[in-house]
Amino acid sequence: MKINVLAFGIAREILGGPQRQITLPEGATVADLRRLLETEAPGLKRLRSWAVAVNSEYAENALALQPGDEIAVIPPVSGG
């Protein structure tokens, strides 16, 4: 299934833009999504903690993704 990922903050630079389309097998979970993104964009690993939101809710790794889910990658921000 094709999934659209929105990127916030520094994740935009790491993923190469505010949106990125990725392809995952049916039944893939958030853990699979994290693995794929970290392989395609290794810079994500340097963030150590980055949040995945699925349909505006913080998603745990076991959550199974559905086609059409709205996914966002949210990195930590420190500025003040």
């Binding site: 903050g9 520094i10 810079g43 340097r46 963030l47 150590r48 903690s49 990195p75 930590p76 921000v77 420190s78």
Partner: peptide, 8 residues
């Protein structure tokens, strides 16, 4: 966990 130094 915090990011690696310099990552953000």
């Amino acid at each position: 966990e915090p990011p690696e130094p310099g990552a953000v």
